[in-house]
Amino acid sequence: MAVLMRALRLIFAVAFLACATGATAADVLIVQSGRSTAYEESVRGFRSAHKGTVQTVVLSDYAEVDVVRLVKEEQPRLVLAVGDAALAASRKVSQVPVVGLLAPSLNLAKRPVGSVSGVGVLPPPERYLELCRTLGAKRVGVIHDPDRTGLYLKRARQAANRFGIELVVREVRAPRETLARLEQLKGAVDALWMLPDATAVTAETLEGWFLFSLQQKVPVVTFSEQYLAKGAAVSLDVDRADLGRQAAELADSLLNGAASRSTWPDARKVTVHTNETVGKNLGLDLSAGVK
């Protein structure tokens, strides 16, 4: 029944798009993975910065969307893939450039191939390292899956030397290995850097990260404000609207031919959030110099 409903929705979408493009074709086809707040926020940023017309398809609303066929039929000048699902669905589009937005897989694991460009979901590693140095950490523990965040950690390692920070890295291939790796880090690190690694950070292992912080009295530096309430000391949050705007700028450059199709800039605007309670518990004065 649900499948039937989704099929009906797709038919309606195609019909709608057909009707719409019959008059004038949109410049940008936004393929949105879902209707999360983060996606909407980024898309709003994109729209605010992009002057052309856009059409949006939310994948989660349909059972299956053939983006390549859709591009053929609609003939947009650019496809904006919002989210990993949308990016995956748009990878086979070759007629027009594809710009990824809020897609962690875009430039964390390895560089994408083909005509895919996009804005990274994280700021440059230096920003995190700078933050760690501000916290007084000399040894920063990182647990990650190389298949998910190998490229980004490589960049971090390269920058760490410049900041005089030793990255103590433990790799995991499965979430269940995370707690064991955390055990290995006991007494070996001054801070813990949590990357948006879906293998290392899961709902099951999340408590282990903060218990480590609690028991070892080391702060956890994370990528989202949401983890502050769970026990993280500091988060470095990207501005999603600015990400959208940054993606719009990239899209305009691509449409104007000013940029190559393989451009992956890091997020440029971030916001630092701290948990004063955690800082107090850890004996850190987060309000002073972190921000």
Binding site: E207, F210, L214, A229, K230, G231, N275, E276, V278, N281
Partner: peptide
């Protein structure tokens, strides 16, 4: 309550 206390998560 250890972690919520640690993080000051009053809601939790």
């Amino acid at each position: 309550a250890r972690l919520p206390l640690f993080s000051g998560d009053a809601e939790e």
